[in-house]
Amino acid sequence: MTTTWKLSFSVPLATAEIFADTLRDAFDPECQAVATAEIEEHITWSVEAYYEIRPERAHMEKLLSGPSAESGYTIDDLLIEALPEINWVAKSLEGLAPIQTDRFFVHGTHDVENLPAAKIPLLVDAGEAFGTGHHGTTLGCLRFIERECRRRHPQNALDLGCGTGLLAIAIAKLTHRVVTASDIDPIATRVTGENARANRAHPFIKALTAAGFGHPELTARGPYDLIVANILAGPLVGLAPAVAQHLAPGGTLILSGILAEQEQMVTSAYRAQGLFLVERLPLDEWVTLRLAG
C-alpha cells in the first residue's frame, strides 16, 4: 500500500489561502490535495497538503518563503509526517450489516457468530477488490444466480470480472461444480483465492488473471453454460462478441454493472450476437440482466 505524506502548519486567517495556493500550484513536489481548516475562530487556520512522495523539509521551507515574505508571517510549526497505511475501502465498509437473499447470508468476520441455520453463509470481508454483496449490482447477480440454479443445475460456470470472487463462490456452493473466476486485476484473483479458502470452496474455484478472454485456459475450459459478468457497461459492450462465442448453446448470461440509462446500449450489443433479454432486475440506479440465446 502506498504511503501518504502530510505537510501541515498553522497561519493567521488572512494568510491561509496565500500559503494554500502556493502548495496547490507547485509542480515540485506536486501535491495530491490541499486543505485549510479553522483552528481558532476568525484567528488561526491550519494548512495541510498531501503527497505520494515524502517532501524534503529544506525544499518546502524554501517554497513557503515566498508567501511568508508576501504576507509577513513566518511559519514556526511546519510538520511533515507519514500517515498510517489504512485500506480506506475496508475502513469504509467495516461493520456493515449482513446481506440476506433467499439462499445466502453474506457477512463479514464480525458476524460469524450470527449465522442463520437456513442460509448458505458467504464470508467476504471488505478489502482490496469489489464485491461484498452490499452494492446493487452484486446483489442483483446473487438473486439471478439463485433463480438460475433453481431452474436448472449449471455444470460449467464462469464469473467474468470476479472481484472478490463472491459470485463464483456462490455458484460453487449451489452447484458443487468447479467455477472459473477471472479478472484483469491480479489483486482480485488473489483475493478470490483467499475468499474461496475462507469459505471452504477452494476445491471448486479456478481463478485466472486475464483481460477479457485473453487467457488460453479460459477458452480451453469453455464453453460455459452460465456466464456472470458484473463489470461496467462499456466493457460489457466491448466483450459481447467474445462472451457470445464462449457461451454454450442454451446457456444463460447474467450481466450487471449497468446503469438504468445504459441498459438499451448493452441489450442492443448482445442482441446483435443472438442473445436476448429474458429478465431484468432493477436495484437503486442499477439494473441486472438475464439473457439467453
Rank of each mutant, 00 (worst) to 15 (best):
A35Q: 10
A35Y: 05
A35K: 10
T36M: 08
T36G: 03
T36S: 10
A37I: 03
A37T: 08
A37D: 11
A37V: 03
E38N: 11
I39V: 15
I39C: 05
I39N: 06
E40L: 13
E40R: 11
E40V: 15
E41M: 12
I43N: 13
I43L: 14
T44Q: 12
T44W: 15
T44I: 15
T44H: 10
W45D: 00
W45Q: 03
W45E: 01
S46K: 05
S46E: 13
S46V: 05
V47N: 00
V47I: 08
V47W: 01
E48Q: 11
A49P: 02
Y50K: 02
Y51V: 04
Y51L: 06
Y51T: 04
E52N: 14
I53P: 00
P55R: 00
P55G: 03
E56G: 08
R57Y: 11
R57I: 09
A58Y: 05
A58E: 15
A58P: 02
H59Q: 13
H59Y: 09
H59G: 06
M60S: 01
M60A: 02
M60L: 15
E61F: 04
E61S: 09
K62V: 07
L63H: 06
L64A: 06
L64S: 01
L64D: 00
S65H: 06
S65N: 09
S65K: 08
G66F: 09
P67G: 04
S68F: 04
S68I: 05
A69T: 11
E70P: 00
E70C: 04
E70A: 12
E70K: 10
S71K: 00
G72I: 07
Y73S: 08
I75P: 01
I75E: 01
I75A: 04
I75G: 01
D76M: 05
D77G: 13
D77S: 13
D77T: 10
L79D: 15
L79Y: 08
L79T: 15
I80R: 03
I80C: 06
I80K: 02
E81Q: 13
E81S: 14
A82S: 14
L83S: 04
L83K: 02
L83I: 07
L83C: 06
P84T: 02
E85I: 04
E85D: 15
I86Y: 00
I86T: 12
I86V: 15
N87R: 08
N87K: 06
W88A: 01
W88L: 07
W88I: 01
V89E: 15
A90H: 03
A90G: 15
L93Q: 14
L93E: 09
E94D: 11
G95D: 14
